[in-house]
Write a protein that binds this DNA or RNA. Sequence first.
DNA 1: TATTGACACATTGTCCGACAATAGGTCAAT
DNA 2: ATTGACCTATTGTCGGACAATGTGTCAATA
Lengths: 251, 251
Amino acid sequence: MPVNHNFSKLARQPAYRAVSEKIRQVILSGELQAGDMLPTELELAEQFGVTRSTLREAIRLLEESGIIGRADRKRLVVTLPQTAAVGRSVSSAMLMHRVTFKELWQVAMGLEPLAGKLACASATDEDKQRLADNLQRTETVLEDHARLLEAEIDFHNLVASATHNYALLQARAPLNDLFYPAWGAVIRALSPGQRILVAHRRVYEAICNNKPREAERWMEKHMIDFRRGIEMGNLGFDQPVTSAANTSGQN
Amino acid sequence: MPVNHNFSKLARQPAYRAVSEKIRQVILSGELQAGDMLPTELELAEQFGVTRSTLREAIRLLEESGIIGRADRKRLVVTLPQTAAVGRSVSSAMLMHRVTFKELWQVAMGLEPLAGKLACASATDEDKQRLADNLQRTETVLEDHARLLEAEIDFHNLVASATHNYALLQARAPLNDLFYPAWGAVIRALSPGQRILVAHRRVYEAICNNKPREAERWMEKHMIDFRRGIEMGNLGFDQPVTSAANTSGQN
DNA sequence: TATTGACACATTGTCCGACAATAGGTCAAT
DNA sequence: ATTGACCTATTGTCGGACAATGTGTCAATA
């Protein structure tokens, strides 16, 4: 009988990955900070003892992570990852996993009321002003479906931003890419401009008056309205969401 | 006086990015599905009309997104992104943004009770069995700080998995990487094994008996205990979290 | 029959060298 | 102060090269 010892498969990693990990580590350790310039590709390659080709592959990995970018289309620079950039990877993953509208809605029910609640304590005057501007703009586009959707998405982003909680912003990033855009169909089908405006107004007032409970409740009601809209329009609440327009060229 | 027309800066993108976007698009459109093999690098390069070097850079971008990988260390294959893989990018971003423990805790307060609630409706017998196994294991390692932390993290992952909601899994991924590991300090300082076990048991029972409210409440209490632990141990509730051990070699 | 070994082949990981395009700087001319 | 001419450094892309390694085939062996 053969002796049965299971060796753990040893994971050798290619050079481009090792290089990438090393750079990432240096950045995350704080040794290199956002805004710092990196040496030229040639110099980096020499330091690591690899060729420029290999180094460039390593750079691509970090580039997709959003932690390095190019300043002025030239020099490499350590970058503070933008929520949108990081969120795109997450959204891609969700699309491939055939995430349903229902699943996203459940997450939204967890995060959006929370955002409203937290915003009450942390919103600055500037945040409030931006929300006020958004409301005013919303009033003028109640019948313009495209612009209404845009304003709607903006509003929720503004509330989330007002929490000044980056972890929350990041967690709800996929909602921006997948949840709200899909909701455009509801707007076109039901024209619920008035209901949206009322909910947004209540949330705004709650934030201004520092009433967390109110903000939370109205955001929750707002989300439930979303669900009702999807169901009433028979727009596939249990269907996988689709990538409406993913041709974004952000930076 | 000069006529003032603002041109939008036209965004040319390098070839490696264009190639990457094209492949991503084909995959997200469903034309290529998870598990499908891609042609060899040389063939792909010929199809796009670029060199292998350029194509390889494009591949790296997709690789970091987790949507393609290698089967058997060779052929390129379309992959269903793993939460851990995607989550790493997100965690990196949060670390660079100096996300505080408090921020993560706020997100956890939004997502973990939600996970408990949803799990009640969707947990399979297998899910419940896994939770039961975890509880049993936890009892045996109450004094072993390292193993206890491991079991603790596992438990929350199991609850989240039991929701069968990928969007939720993805949203809470950073909690795994940053929130719970940081909590290891609390375990070492306060040895709250018993409190953990009790909370976990209540959540487990609630899930088995299909009592969403209970599951939600106990998860919430559990999270509040977390916060108390951090504050009592004076472990920096308002400090940025640090990447305890980020030397993970996952696939 | 099932395992082993030898061998050829395809593909990747890595290297090297090359060149056009362009961002940035300097300096003179206007 | 702006424009234009010029030089330099660096990137984006190319083409070719080779060793290492996974894959497949086929004969030899137990």
